[in-house]
Simulated scan of single mutants.
Amino acid sequence: MQMPATRLLRVRAAARLRPDLLLWGPLGAAIAAIALLQGAGADRWLADQLYALEGGRWALQHAWFTEDLVHRWGKRLDILAWLVMACTRMVLARDAGKRAWWRPLDYLLVATLTGPLMVSWLKSWTAVDCPWDLVRYGGSHPYVELLQPRPAGHGPGQCFPAGHASAGYGWLALFFGLGALDRRWGWIGLGIALGVGLVFGISQQLRGAHFLSHDVASAAVCWLMAWVCARLMLPRQPAVKA
Rank of each mutant, 00 (worst) to 15 (best):
residue 11 V to M: 14
residue 16 R to L: 13
residue 19 P to V: 11
residue 26 P to W: 06
residue 29 A to Y: 03
residue 30 A to K: 05
residue 31 I to S: 13
residue 35 A to H: 01
residue 40 A to I: 05
residue 40 A to M: 13
residue 45 W to M: 11
residue 46 L to E: 03
residue 48 D to F: 05
residue 52 A to I: 05
residue 55 G to P: 15
residue 58 W to F: 14
residue 60 L to H: 13
residue 64 W to Y: 12
residue 68 D to N: 12
residue 73 W to H: 12
residue 73 W to P: 00
residue 82 W to K: 10
residue 83 L to V: 12
residue 86 A to Y: 07
residue 88 T to C: 13
residue 89 R to E: 00
residue 91 V to I: 15
residue 93 A to S: 13
residue 100 A to N: 03
residue 101 W to G: 02
residue 110 V to C: 13
residue 111 A to W: 06
residue 119 V to E: 05
residue 120 S to V: 00
residue 120 S to N: 09
residue 122 L to P: 02
residue 122 L to M: 15
residue 124 S to G: 09
residue 127 A to D: 15
residue 128 V to R: 14
residue 132 W to F: 12
residue 135 V to L: 14
residue 148 Q to C: 02
residue 149 P to C: 07
residue 149 P to M: 07
residue 150 R to D: 07
residue 151 P to F: 11
residue 155 G to L: 07
residue 155 G to I: 07
residue 157 G to F: 08
residue 159 C to L: 09
residue 163 G to Y: 03
residue 166 S to E: 07
residue 174 L to C: 09
residue 175 F to R: 15
residue 179 G to E: 04
residue 180 A to M: 08
residue 180 A to D: 15
residue 182 D to N: 10
residue 189 G to I: 06
residue 192 I to E: 05
residue 194 L to H: 00
residue 195 G to P: 01
residue 196 V to N: 02
residue 207 R to V: 03
residue 212 L to D: 01
residue 216 V to Y: 01
residue 218 S to C: 08
residue 222 C to I: 02
residue 228 V to H: 00
residue 230 A to S: 13
residue 232 L to R: 10
residue 235 P to W: 04
residue 242 A to M: 11
